[in-house]
Each structure stands twice: as C-alpha cells, then as structure tokens.
Design a protein around this nucleic acid. Sequence first.
RNA 1: GCCAGGGUGGCCGAGCGGUUUAGGCGGCGGGCUGCAGACCCGCUACACUGGGGUUCGAAUCCUCACCCUGGCUCCA
Length: 386
Amino acid sequence: MMRIFNTRTGVKEFFIPQDPFEVKVYVCGPTVYDLCHVGHARTYVNFDVLKRYLTSLGYNVIHVQNFTDIDEKIDHRAKKEGLSPREVAERFIMEYFFDMDSLNVTRATRYTKASEYVPKIIKITERLLELGYAYRSGDAIYFDVEGAGGFGELVRDLKSAIVDEVRASGKRGPFDFVLWRITGEGFESPFGRGVPGWHTECVAMSMDNLGEVLDIHWGGKDLIYPHHECEALIAKALTGKRFVKYWVHNEFVLLKGQKMSKSSGERAYIRDVLKRYSAEVLRTWILSSNYREKIEFSEESLRKAQLLYEKISRAATKARGNEGMGQCAKDYAELFMSALDDDLETGQALSVVEELSDRVLEGKIEGAWRIFSLVESVLGIKIRPH
RNA sequence: GCCAGGGUGGCCGAGCGGUUUAGGCGGCGGGCUGCAGACCCGCUACACUGGGGUUCGAAUCCUCACCCUGGCUCCA
C-alpha cells in the first residue's frame, strides 16, 4: 500500500481514499499573470507522476485544478500592457498549457477559473455570515478565525510579527482574513461591488467539483500558510467535516540558495531552460529528487540529469522490443515500484533505472524493456531513440 | 519561536545494518588532434560532525549534543 507524507500530521501515512476505486484531488494552480518557472514545473510534474502512479495502481483519479484569474497582479500587468485583466489571464493560461504540454504533464480532468465561480463564492460568504463565522467591518467581509476554532490544521505557531501588523487594521481577531472586499468595482454582490478573497475561491471550486471532502489537496509548500490553513477553516465551518484527508506539499526549487519566487525577481522560466536542455532532461532533473526535498537549480545538476537521461535512453534503445522478463529484470521492476510506493521517491526510482541501465549496457541483463516502458508511462519521461 | 531537511573523500552527491562502500566534477596518465578544446580509454579518494547506546557487526537503528540550510507577507 502506498505511503504519503501528510503535512497535517507530519508523518508518512498509508494512502486510503474514501472510495476504494476513486481518488479526488484538488491541485492549486498558478495565479496567471506571468510565465511559469521551474518551481511551477516541479509542482505539476511531481503531481503528474503521483497521478500516473495512482492510475497504474488501478485508481480512477479525478483531478481538478484551478487558475487564479482574479488578482491585483493581473490588474497591474494589464494596466502596464494596455490590456484587460481578462486578456492577460487568458494569455498566461495558454502559456501554462504550452509549457506543461511540452513537459508531458497530463491534463487535469477539469480546469476551473476563479472568475467563473463568483456566484458560488458569494453563496459561501452569505452562508458564513448566516452561521456567524463571518462579519462585516469597514469595506470588507471578514472570516472570524477565533470564532471558528482558530488555526491548527497545518500550522501550530505563527510569527508574532505578523500578529502586531494585522492587529492594527480593525478586525476582531488578528488572523481574520477577507472573504469579500468591497471596492466599488469588480463583481456585483449583495454586500456591494467588489472582489472575492483568495481562499474562498479554492473552497468553492474544489467543493463544487469534488464534494465536501477531498482525498488529496496538492500544492507548493508556500501555500500552507495562509492559503490552505484558511481553506481548511472555511470548509470546516461550512460542512463540519475535515476538508482534506491528505495535504501534500511540494518543496521549493532554489536558485542561488534562495526560493525561486515570482515576486523576488530570481527565477528561471521553463521555456528559457528548454532552449538549452530538452524537456525530457528537465523532467528527469525534477524527478531525480523526492518532491519533499529542496533542490538547487544549477547548470551542474542539469548536466547531470542530461547524462542520466542519455544513459537511460541508450539502454532503453538497446532493450526495446525485448519483452521477456528475467528474474533479475523483475527484481528491478519491483524496486522501481516500491520506491514510488514509499512517498513517491522518484529519485530512488530513477536510481534503480540507472543501475538497470548500466547492467543492460554491459550486456548483463536482457528483456528489460517493460521497465523502460514504466519510465515512460509512470514517470512520464519519453524515451527518444539513441 | 514553529515546521521541514541536512552534516559522507578536494567539491557536488548516492548509499539507510554486513559483500567490489554509486555516480558526476576536478586531478593524473594515455588515445585522438599541428596546439588547445570537445570526445574516448584508464587511474585517482578504504570518507562518513561529536559523545553514549543497541548489535556478532553501524555512515546506515536509538539517544543526547553541537553546527548548518530553507520556509513561516503575496508566492508552486
């Protein structure tokens, strides 16, 4: 049985979905105001492998993923380029698909956009007001964090500095967050024209498509607080149930030792990397470490991935067509699958493949093509004839 | 403070209970080259932060230290 690290409990747990044949997953997609960088690639490629793996185990994976297309950064970019926010969002949604397709990331069952869920978001906000978990203050509807039981799903302690800062803004509690901001422009609502808060958007999109309880909620580690913590609280307030069975978060890609962040300026766009390395190499690079490890983005590590990929393709080309499975090849296949079974250890799975490749190239093993076909189908790394 | 993860040969980086202790970079020697680079072949390091414990046996498990990295505003 597969084990997966749950951020909520802090340990690897056996993966048991609510339905024995179906897995409901919500993946937090990007805010579409810029091109995707290698950090995004990592998040979606890793999830893609989890999806492929679960599918290979026989699960029907329902994968819903959003685009956050209501955001100030989108408005800023639109203003700068003389476009409408919608045009900016649409453009970067297209760019997202362009990048992810080139990396062989399979498409979600359904993609959602926050802008299409505004009526549902309003409904949720009204319901929270009715239930007494939300209140109006000034030009905003806030969620009452203390009233709903406080944080604690994913985060136990918050920096005191944040508390001081937020206390000054006239909310009931320091951590209370916005459900609806009345701005006088934007979307019509019973509270006044305005824009929804980020956290409610994801609750609306996930619940509407997947129901009240998700099996897996996947996203980058940077979303743990506040985004996912707030989502969990909103959902719990609405349904009384725990929102997510397994919270899974992807570690960062570091650039010069720092997190690659859209706002800090230090980033490497996927398409720039693909000018110098093939998509298969970039994918191999991403998968050579476990999704919970930090990785440093460097030329050296990319070159290494390139060598690994070339070795695997050479061996695969040699093994192609030989479908028989000797005992030795079977052992490798088992090692490969058990690596993925243990919290999606893709790095380990690849090192199994590397060792096998060495054996194949030395002529010590034959009939290993089926394992290379797993590299293609489960890891999603296309083998090019070499 | 909280969370996660580390301390392995000149460097990067696997290994996660015992056999030949990956691999890469570098370095050294050779081949190929008018020279160099690239490429190919060979050689090169018995390393594992410190104490204590478990064990016939530990880099690998337990424990106590010490040190380091990243994150905790919007962010994948």
